Simulated scan of single mutants.
Amino acid sequence: MARNVEAYSALRELPVDFLAGFCLACAERGSGVFTALARPADSEWFSYALDTAWKVPTGQFDEDDLIEILEEFETNIGAMDADDPGSKRFSITQSAVLAVNAIAVYMNPNPARAEMSGQTLETILGSFDFKLGGSSVTVIRAGEDEAVGHLQQLEQDAQNSFIESVRALIRDQEGSSLGEDFLENLRESCAPIRDEIRAAAESVAELADWYQE
């Protein structure tokens, strides 16, 4: 599975505030996985966690709320047995990790932790691409580039677009930190891919009989 290594390398060059923005965008796009597959009660928690994560960079949060989100994650979602990357539980757990990690990266900016969000979502989407493609293994010959599926390519393109938008802000001297307008536009831009990912997750669930679990 070919990873978006150039984007992850670029994270180390961005102002640290934008690392949280990268993670928030991954979480928003990946939220389609959680809402498609999780129980309604867990989806309610996730929506609250994700909305709170988007408020953190603007200072609209209470530390007690963040602690509650982390505790809820550890107790309910994080406690799932989700070792199989091709399982429903893995997809649910890892999509929840994206929201939690966005909060963690804002509180303690770290390029490696930000990269984890991108890698996590690529893993989920690569698995979906594999299942939707008939679960057939493609042999890569020496010298050939490893194929990237449709969903994973969408994610890589979105990550690259984020990197370029931040570089443009810096180049035009329009800001070096996350602002409310930037965040609002960023979240809105994630919606089409989020919705496509959700539809793909529903298709995968039907193919794998996950709705019977």
Score class of each variant (00 low, 15 high):
N76R: 15
G78I: 06
G78S: 04
A79P: 01
M80P: 01
D81N: 12
D81H: 11
D81Y: 11
A82T: 12
A82I: 08
D84G: 08
S87N: 05
K88T: 14
K88A: 15
S91R: 00
S95V: 08
V100P: 02
N101Y: 04
N101W: 02
A102V: 07
M107L: 15
M107S: 14
P111N: 12
R113L: 06
R113Q: 13
R113F: 04
A114D: 03
A114Q: 04
A114F: 00
E115A: 15
M116H: 10
S117R: 04
T120W: 02
L121Q: 03
E122D: 06
E122L: 03
T123N: 13
F128V: 03
F128I: 02
F128E: 03
D129G: 01
F130Q: 07
L132E: 06
G133V: 02
G133H: 05
S135G: 06
S135F: 11
V137L: 11
T138E: 12
V139H: 06
R141P: 04
R141D: 10
A142H: 11
A142K: 13
A142E: 11
G143D: 07
V148A: 09
G149I: 07
G149P: 00
G149K: 08
H150P: 00
Q152E: 10
L154K: 08
E155W: 13
D157Q: 10
Q159E: 13
N160T: 00
E164V: 01
R167N: 15
R167E: 14
A168Q: 15
A168Y: 08
L169S: 15
L169R: 11
E174M: 07
E174S: 14
G175V: 01
S177D: 13
G179N: 09
E180S: 14
D181M: 07
D181T: 14
D181L: 08
L183N: 03
E184Q: 13
N185W: 08
L186E: 14
L186P: 05
